[in-house]
């Protein structure tokens, strides 16, 4: 099977007044790909990601996500993607089971599907014993892994991960990437942002945004060659230093 494009972005632009947050970006993401979305603070990543998730309309350009048009079918996009951010994902005052039940309901799963998915997830994450514990009582690392699984409850085609490993301990950070690899090997497309440059190396392809534009796009190997850098940190430094639009 030739890889299907699950995200297709063409000349996408978003302006706020006279400020161009996202400036004419074009790229595709294939099914099952781990796509790293990098950029300095203020480069326009969040704005671009909000558009791709159907949360904000572009000023101009075209994009389709999971087979749906950004302008016409934003609601269908929301049903077909998963989203997880470092800042918010689970309700801390609900138990593990209640969170799964809640998100299952939001994503429109049947009771039977919710039951099946919960069992599968609790086994995979070894959370069986904690099923009736409040989420806030779980160590952060477990919470992050659970957030990821919850974002995957409805078997979305694409999962958007916004700095999923920020503040996480180094072992859990690596376990988290194992979850990413497993999801990708099952055909889920993973769209991920990170400030950890070692994690950029784990992506199939990486894009780097500078001043609202996508200034680099390719596999880590290609980018390192193109910028004569020994690692992705080196590639990132070269590009981000060029930025004229500073976050401060």
């Amino acid at each position: 099977m030739s890889a299907e494009k699950v995200i297709s972005v063409k000349e996408l632009t978003k302006r706020f007044g006279d400020f161009t947050a996202v400036d004419n970006i074009t790229f595709d993401v294939k099914q099952g790909e781990i796509f790293g979305f990098l950029g300095a603070n203020g480069a326009g990543k969040t704005t671009a990601m909000r558009m791709l998730c159907g949360l904000s309309f572009p000023t101009s350009g075209e994009a389709s996500v999971a087979g749906f048009d950004l302008y016409k079918n934003a609601d269908a996009i929301k049903r077909n993607i998963g989203y997880m951010s470092q800042k918010f994902s689970l309700y801390e005052d609900l138990t593990v089971r209640e969170n799964i039940r809640f998100y299952g309901g939001i994503y429109g799963l049947t009771d039977r599907e919710i039951k099946e998915k919960s069992d599968e997830m609790l086994t995979q994450l070894k959370l069986g014993e904690q099923v009736n514990s409040l989420v806030k009582s779980l160590p952060l690392g477990w919470r992050q892994k659970m957030s990821f699984s919850v974002a995957m409850l409805h078997s979305p085609k694409i999962v958007f991960l916004d700095e999923p490993t920020g503040g996480v301990d180094p072992i859990t950070r690596r376990e988290f990437w194992t979850l990413i690899y497993e999801a990708a090997s099952r055909g889920t497309t993973v769209f991920v942002t990170t400030h950890y440059m070692d994690e950029a190396e784990y992506c199939d392809r990486v894009s780097i945004m500078v001043d609202g534009r996508v200034d680099a796009l390719g596999s880590p190997t290609e980018l390192k060659e193109q910028f004569s850098a020994k690692d992705m940190g080196g590639v990132f430094l070269q590009l981000a230093r060029k930025a004229t639009r500073s976050d401060g």
Binding site: G39, A40, N41, Q86, E163, G167, H195, F236, L237
Partner: peptide, 10 residues
């Protein structure tokens, strides 16, 4: 430096 990009952290 939490949530800050690699260049700004430096």
């Amino acid at each position: 430096t939490t949530g800050v990009d690699a260049v700004s952290r430096k």
